[in-house]
Amino acid sequence: MTHLPSGTQWLHSRVDINGYEEYSGTEYRSAGCSEEYNVIERNLEHAGGEESLMLEGDIGGGLVLQRQLYIPKNDPKVFRIDSSIIARKVGAGSGGYSRLVCLRVHPMFTLLHPSESHVSFTAVDGSKHEIGPESNEQFYEGNLMPNGEWMLIDKCLGLGLLNRFDVSQVFKCLIHWGTGTVNLELWSEERPVSNQSPLRISHEYEVIDLF
């Protein structure tokens, strides 16, 4: 994913690992990661409308992982992703509820200047945090979870990648630093879903000029 105004490539992508993945469980690369997704809705921008794409993948057990990608027409600097785990055909013997699932958003970002990069956020309790690569991997939940947004900052570029999310949909956040990469993950609660109670995470990204 390249941000055209700044010419920066944020998402890290290889043949075996794409830059943005979503899972249906707490396990790394669980169902939803490598399943085939079908485009079920496509709206191309015209007459000032909103450009969007909706994808859906079968993750087994009567469940689908649905993802809508769009750029809001009233805020074209923002890239928004709305994801859901939805029960479509859950067996009658289960009382209408699925297996335990967790919507885990797993983006991998490229660090052009790893030693000059960090993640910054204000937690729910008002405390301020700056997390660098030396922290390796760290979960944040409860009052220490980011209060609706966190930012990956590259001080050399003078740019930040701001990720906003709904704290009511996110149970915990994970920062994992790799070699020249970082994951900023959003995890929902873990629970069964039914037709009336899907799991959802809506979040968005915006590149911020810090100079």
Rank of each mutant, 00 (worst) to 15 (best):
204 E>A: 10
109 F>R: 10
30 S>D: 10
6 S>D: 05
40 I>L: 05
82 D>Q: 13
51 E>G: 15
88 R>G: 00
77 K>P: 03
210 L>R: 14
61 G>T: 01
20 Y>S: 07
162 L>F: 06
155 K>G: 00
88 R>D: 04
13 S>G: 07
202 S>E: 08
182 V>T: 11
204 E>H: 12
54 M>N: 04
102 C>S: 05
22 E>S: 10
143 N>W: 07
41 E>H: 12
96 G>E: 00
209 D>A: 13
137 E>R: 12
150 W>P: 05
133 P>M: 04
64 V>G: 04
184 L>E: 07
195 N>L: 08
125 D>E: 06
81 I>W: 03
133 P>T: 02
68 Q>M: 10
156 C>Y: 04
102 C>P: 04
163 N>T: 15
169 Q>W: 02
132 G>S: 13
166 D>L: 01
13 S>W: 12
34 S>Y: 11
182 V>I: 08
132 G>P: 01
57 G>V: 05
192 P>G: 00
25 G>R: 10
43 N>W: 06
51 E>N: 13
18 N>A: 06
166 D>H: 08
90 V>E: 07
208 I>N: 03
59 I>K: 09
63 L>V: 03
75 D>M: 11
117 S>E: 05
100 L>H: 11
82 D>T: 09
12 H>D: 08
10 W>D: 03
125 D>L: 05
35 E>S: 08
90 V>H: 06
17 I>C: 06
123 A>M: 10
205 Y>S: 05
173 C>I: 07
63 L>R: 10
6 S>I: 02
139 F>P: 15
